[in-house]
Every structure is written in structure tokens, then in C-alpha cells.
Design a protein around this nucleic acid. Sequence first.
DNA 1: GCCGATTTGTCCGTATGTATC
DNA 2: CGATACATACGGACAAATCGG
Lengths: 242, 242
Amino acid sequence: MPKSIYEDIYKDLKQKIENDVFTYQELLPSENTLIQTYHCSRNTLRRAVSRLVTDGYVQTMQGKGVRNIYQPVDQTAFTIGEIESFRESAVRNGNHAFTKVLLFTEIAINEKQTRYTGFLPGTEVYYIQRLHYLNDIPLILNHNYFLKEVVPGLTKEIAEKSIYEYLEQTLHMTIVNSKRIMTVEKMNQIDETYLNMNADDYNCMAVVSSQTYNSNGVMFEYTQSRHRPDYFRFYDNAVRKG
Amino acid sequence: MPKSIYEDIYKDLKQKIENDVFTYQELLPSENTLIQTYHCSRNTLRRAVSRLVTDGYVQTMQGKGVRNIYQPVDQTAFTIGEIESFRESAVRNGNHAFTKVLLFTEIAINEKQTRYTGFLPGTEVYYIQRLHYLNDIPLILNHNYFLKEVVPGLTKEIAEKSIYEYLEQTLHMTIVNSKRIMTVEKMNQIDETYLNMNADDYNCMAVVSSQTYNSNGVMFEYTQSRHRPDYFRFYDNAVRKG
DNA sequence: GCCGATTTGTCCGTATGTATC
DNA sequence: CGATACATACGGACAAATCGG
């Protein structure tokens, strides 16, 4: 797989920032300097830097330079309470990722399902319920709807491993983008049971609904992910645009 | 304020997509066509289109074209990846916004507050509690911490209108980016009271914690926004990274 | 399967504008 | 004021993917 120059530069700079080659609040070498370092054009370098900006790693300042504003997530101010470190370490040491398939069926979308999935009525899909464990704790209850026409040959065995691996490696599909909406919803009986929660404690949860498109512009997946509220975290970097 | 060409093109195309000049799943005119339409260079046009991609409005396909994948979303949704004040998004969606200042104080950050705000102990800040109403319904309870050194002269009167307007128009500060984390937390007594909620119903809420930087690379604001769960929506578009 | 036309992706060099110091 | 640094814009060249004949 041949890679692009700007991506190599992006990754190199990113890694240097993460490994404290540039310290927090320090200015990076100027564009002209970096151009000489990487032997590339100005456009190519600026493209790499602009990705670092959207990542929230650096900040460009006209006439001044490029400032490193990267802070590792662990040490960041966002650690609220003690559960935090456990949560973080669970994710980082999460070698014990395990997926349990609760339900594997093939259905046709009805009127009600059309409203939230975005699939037209009558569309043939695989409807799968899966429970994702991290370190033996059930964290996420997933409701997946996959377009049968685009994702043929899906089986329970594949769903137990990785559906995306199947899509990319076997079907050679390219996943392009995913529109997501995050909300907070009441827990239902199924959530409580499988996620091992008690309604006397938390009675609602984080819900991420997503529509995913492949490289042909076809929306081939709708998924609703229902997350245990005490383990749910979503990171984002927002950029102010003119 | 002189604007840039690529931004004008971006806005024009965006508006055309929103107004169904191009229908869903349709291909946009090719780059060469659009270049002639807007009388601009290829780079400039591609820059405009790339913003539409990150917005989740279109999808580019090498060798084929640019497909419109825009579908309107709920107007009350907040968009991730973009900084917008409460007032701005309310105005944009044609709603009536009102802000009530519950508390306006000046404090020095203590050890405990350092952990979640990211300000060093002893830092002088304005600590403000505000309640944001949308169409007379209290939706968001905000805890703002503003660095006094960078944001001088803040008053309760300003806090009742728009702090961001004061920052940008009076102090001529440029807000650049904002790192945010979204979690789900238990509601406390204060939340219930001001947001008019009953713990028998929802007992938790969406919490968005954010650190905001200005154009000098200074983190001048920490804010915790506590949202009514039943009105909370965050919209996001994730793009394949390569 | 091949070839050429079309379309997007990557990269380069250069010129000019604007903000900072 | 000049030097430096990032921002915008243009034009050209070649690569890679797609599609139709």
C-alpha cells in the first residue's frame, strides 16, 4: 500500500508531538524549516499541519508560528473522579475485547424502522444484536442493520469476530464516512439485563446512532450503540470557522 | 471583513445542497465545470469541496465524481466540530434564546478545581453559573470559568447577553479551538431544580466539558455544560482517515 | 481486454496578502 | 521599516480510478 507524502509527514509530526519532542505551548519549526526537513513542497507540508489542527494537536497563528497545544488525555484536566483512571486503563489495557452475538436475523424494514434507520420500507437487512465486553465487563449493546444487497454472506460467526474486517478484507469494501447522532435515552429492560445495570442507579444511557456509507455512496449500515453511562466518553475538538 | 474565495464557494455550494438544487445521491457538477462556474483555480474549488466532505454533505469518489449525501437533521441538534455559542445556534435555528445568570463570582482555583478545569491552583477566574432557555424552556446549566487575566472587565450584564460576543467584538479576541468531552452523569439537586426535572423520570444528563483556546494559544475558558437529557442531541460526521 | 476520455487525488512552484515582531 | 511566518490563490504536471466504446 503506497502512502502519500503528506500523510507520512502528518504521522511523523504527530508522533513527535506525542513523544514530547516538542513540549506543550512550544512553537514548532517554521514552515520553511519543515519544508527543508521533509524535502517537500509548501502545500504538502501545510496539508499535514492542517490535519494536526483538526486533531487539536497544534494551533496555527499567522505571523507567529505553530503552537503545540497537545496534552495527553490521561493527564488532561478532564479526569473527573477516581473511576476515571480505571476507565482509561480499561481502554488502554483492553486486550480482553469480546463480542457476544445475542441475535442474528434477516428482516425486511417496516414503516416504524424506516423512521430511525433511514432504510426504505421493505429493504432486506441483517438485524444483529451484539454485546461488547471489555475486560469481561459488558459495555455496549449494539443494534446493527446491514444492507443485505451490499453485505452478502454475513454469518453469526463473522459477527462474533469482526464485521468490519469481513467488509474490508473479504468483500473489499471501503468505508468512507459515518454520520452520528449522540443522545441520552432511558434504559429499557433489555439494556439493564445485558449491561448488568440497576435502574435504581443510572436509569438512562448514552446512545450513539450512526449511518455509515461506503465508497459507492451507499448507506449500507445503520447502528444504534447503547453505552453503559458510567463508562461512556466521547472526545472532540471543535474549530472556530470564520 | 474581507472574505476568502474558497469560503464563498463553500457557502454557496452548501446552501445549494441544503436547498435541494442537487438532490440526494446525485452527482455534483465536475471540478472542471465548477471551476468555470466560479472562475477560480482547481485548488480553491477543491478546498471548498473538502469542507463539504468534513461536514458530511458530500462524498468524493475518484474517477466518478462528487455525490450529494446530505440529509437534513433535526434543527435543535448541536453540531460537533464547530464552535457556536448558545445564542448563535438559537438564532440560526430561529428560536428564542434567553440566558439567566444564577451566580457571578470571582474566585481563585483550588486543588480540587485544578483537576477538572486544567487551570493551575491560585489562578484568578470568573466563576459563572448560567441557565440557558430555549423558547422558555430551561435546557442547559452552564458552569463557566474564565481566566481573569485574559478576559478582563466581565460583568453580570455581559454574561446575560453573550460572553462570546464580548470576547470577539469588544476585546477583539479570536477563539480558535475547543477540546470537548461528552459524558453522562447523575443529576444533582441543583440540576433538578433549575432544569425543572424530576429524578423519578430521568436521573442523569448529558455533560459536555470543554477547554477553549484563543489565538495566542492560551486556554482561557473551562466550561461544563449540563444538558437536559430529553432535549440533548449532538451531531457528528466521522471521515475515514486512511 | 484494451484504449482513451473523464474525474478525482497528489504534488510542485510561484506570487501576493496579512499579521507579528 | 524590514524580516519572518502563516494564509490565500493560481497554474501546471502526473497518478489513479472509473466508464464507455
